[in-house]
Design a protein around this nucleic acid. Structure first.
Lengths: 158, 158
DNA sequence: CCCTTTCAGTCTCTTCAGGGAACGTACTCG
DNA sequence: CGAGTACGTTCCCTGAAGAGACTGAAAGGG
């Protein structure tokens, strides 16, 4: 969709958005994640236009987030499954769920719950530092230029 | 942008997308986060159309993610700052950065680095279980219906 | 053997959102 | 007095999204 090419920016946020920033893409991933892997059922469950669904699926496959595999040769039928790259995007979805539950769920409470295999409890994700393992929020970090920084677009200051 | 009303779905991902899912919104938040808080500088740094920038800022203020404050009364001048709700969205941005760094940075390495105040090290966020504190990825959870589930849209199965 | 259903898309048409530039306003500086 | 800065608003044009009809291939049913 976006006219402005996010993929070219020297910014990991923009480059992530280039892959899944278009409308519907995260919801498609979420549905594939919960087991809705076929075109017809994706279209029905989301209420998305078939045209846009076909476009998004093609794009996500091209970007290596989904894989298109044949589950029946006669008639030829395909389904879409997550690659490792795509499964890691689902971690991002869990983070979105966390924010949505906190700030938009309202009286009714969260629409979906997540049970952690390791402890068996209903819980949610919490961002932690990969080094010291303590909580790591946006308020807890300094932003520094990295090796991949370029003087180009993206308005990256700091 | 999206015609289809994401905000009404019984899905925290869709409802989060309703707030920051439109193109540019996450990049606007990111720039406000790093200290670019005024209209003119946001427009210049992002290369976004002024019209869209004005729309997005109005929307984000309305949703309680940004705050519009007057820093000069004569002439009236405003700047945009993050609310608590908005700062927590930046945690989501850090998660996007993590994925982008891993999968799209390439040879050059990450364009931006983050130093954790608590330990002083360059690091990145890692999703952990809020209950047992062990790593919690999309592969490590069961998805269950929650109290806010409705038989309506969103195709939420499970 | 024909009819219907299922699956996976493709095509066309209309509408609406994004890009980009010009305009307006209110103040400051030289 | 003119130029410059800051913050938008308004305009037109193009291109993307949505609705929904259509295609095509194969299986199932009577």
């Amino acid at each position: 969709m976006q006219r402005t090419p996010f993929g070219d920016m020297a910014c990991s946020i923009a480059r992530t958005l280039d892959v899944v920033g278009e409308p519907w893409s995260p919801l498609i991933l979420r549905n594939v994640y919960v087991g809705i892997t076929r075109f017809e059922r994706l279209q029905q469950s989301l209420g998305i236009s078939r045209k846009v669904l076909a476009e998004r699926l093609r794009w996500l496959v091209e970007k290596g987030v989904l894989e298109r595999t044949e589950y029946s040769s006669r008639p030829p039928r395909h389904e879409y499954t997550l690659t490792v790259k795509g499964m890691e995007l689902c971690d991002l979805l869990l983070t979105m769920v966390r924010w949505g539950d906190r700030w938009t769920a309202g009286e009714a409470g969260p629409p979906v719950l997540y049970r952690h295999h390791a402890c068996g409890e209903i819980s949610h994700v919490e961002p932690r530092c990969s080094v010291c393992e303590r909580p790591m929020h946006a308020t807890d970090v300094d932003v520094l230029p990295g090796p991949g920084a370029s003087g180009a677009r993206s308005g990256s200051p700091a």
